[in-house]
């Protein structure tokens, strides 16, 4: 099988895979009862009526985790080809990879020292 044939499989797979989980949901739409009323449709909140807007401002800590993750994610993009070719490379490649990882570890240590990794 050639490259595009494999990807044709993935393409058809993506197009069809969602049908199977969607089937029971669609099926249930035909057989389930449907008697909505205002109180039933209210969102749940500890048994009392909901207070205020749900979509409020969130704390910045989530965003920082997201940023740190993004940086590491991009690092992995560079490390995958490195790991892939590693068997054919000489010792210089190990050094290059080492410097690359060390520079990133610096960033992790900095985040750690600045307490950016604390959940608070």
């Amino acid at each position: 099988m050639n490259l595009l044939n494999e990807w044709a499989f993935i393409g058809v797979f993506v197009a069809i895979a969602w049908v199977f989980p969607a089937l029971p949901v669609v099926l249930s739409a035909f057989v389930r009862p449907r008697k909505p009323n205002a109180i039933k449709m209210q969102t749940y909140e500890c048994g009392v009526e909901t207070v205020g807007d749900t979509w409020v401002q969130f704390k910045v800590q989530y965003y920082i985790y997201g940023l740190v993750f993004l940086v590491f994610d991009v690092e992995m993009v560079f490390l995958f080809p490195w790991a892939l070719a590693y068997n054919q490379l000489n010792f210089f490649a190990f050094g290059a990879g080492l410097v690359f990882i060390f520079l990133l570890t610096d960033a992790l240590i900095y985040a750690w020292r600045r307490n950016a990794l604390e959940w608070a």
């Binding site: 969602w18 969607a22 969102t43």
Partner: peptide, 28 residues
């Protein structure tokens, strides 16, 4: 399948219904 299925008031209907399907598809 035979249970009533409640979409809460004020929910974002399309995204609300798509999410469980995408959740399973991502594993399949």
């Amino acid at each position: 399948i035979t249970k009533e299925d409640i979409t809460p008031a004020g929910a974002d209907k399309l995204i609300y219904n798509l999410a469980p399907i995408i959740s399973v598809v991502s594993v399949i």
